[in-house]
Amino acid sequence: MSGANVPYHMRQNKSVDRMLFIDLLTRLNRYIPIPDYRYVSFGAAFLEDFKLLHSHFGLRSMLSIEMDEQAFLRQTFNLPLRCIQNFRQKSGDFIDRYNSETPTIIWLDYASAKELREQLQEIQALVVKLRVGDVLKVTLNANPEAMSPGLHHYDGRQETVDEKRDRLFKQLDTRLGDFLPTGYSPDDLSPIRFPKMLLGASRDAITTAFDGRRLSEGVYIQPLLSCAYQDGPHQMLTFTVIVLRDGEKNDFLDKTGLNNWGYQNLDWENFNKISVPALTVKEKISIDRLLPGGSAEEILTQLGFNFGRNNRESVEAVENYKKYYRYYPNYQRVMF
């Protein structure tokens, strides 16, 4: 699990993704008793998500899984709350043994792109064990190049983008096998399109694994929220689903109000594209004073400079900020 030692509370996009998740849970809380849930996740050294869930909902049963020895020791050292137990275990072993009577929120926060197939198999093994009302969040590495990084050559020269996408697609095809969703081609291995393909692979893996239970028990997996975001050199995809009974959907949407939320993805097709600019405190304050309502032009005029290489990129950055500013992290310097 590379990333285990990176201070990710400093990363604005990842932070927005996490705050959206908390907001989602707030809405789910109108339908299911989130404080009674158990939370399971890969907490790494910082256990940010554990702190957030505890402070927002007062969850008391929390498990963190970590396979790396050093990261585990560091995690143990840092455990911020008494109600967090941590285990030195691989996610696959945890899932193999998983058998819970307690309603559970699980976040499989995968980082490595190379183990995608194993990750999808783990997700499959887990979903068939989930109970009605359980919530699953998954993070996958959505950076196509991370599958086989480094310079590659073709006929003695550096390969072109098209050659690279052909090569990566072949690799994905062998690696994913039947998980490869239909209707995609090497062109879909661009950073912009790849998250959609991954979401399709996840959908297929999950629906295939769950079909038996769906037909025999009348339950299904409802997607709730999906996000793609840039995190340093990596693009990540997250999606959150819940297990519901057939015919429960309308009541669920009514009670949670998810239909009117504006960030929900109730099918496997769409996702939030989070790419907010990293802002100084001064920038943030000046922009926020024009929000909600201010136009990108207005904001850029007020600032007097561009964020990207050109005006178009700047407008995109500001538009994205306008969409997600409520979830933007506030950083403060802390002295101990």
Partner: peptide
């Protein structure tokens, strides 16, 4: 529909 049932994908394969 796909996303709920895997039938479409299975039939495709």
């Amino acid at each position: 529909e796909s996303g709920v049932s895997s039938f479409g994908k299975d039939l495709y394969n």
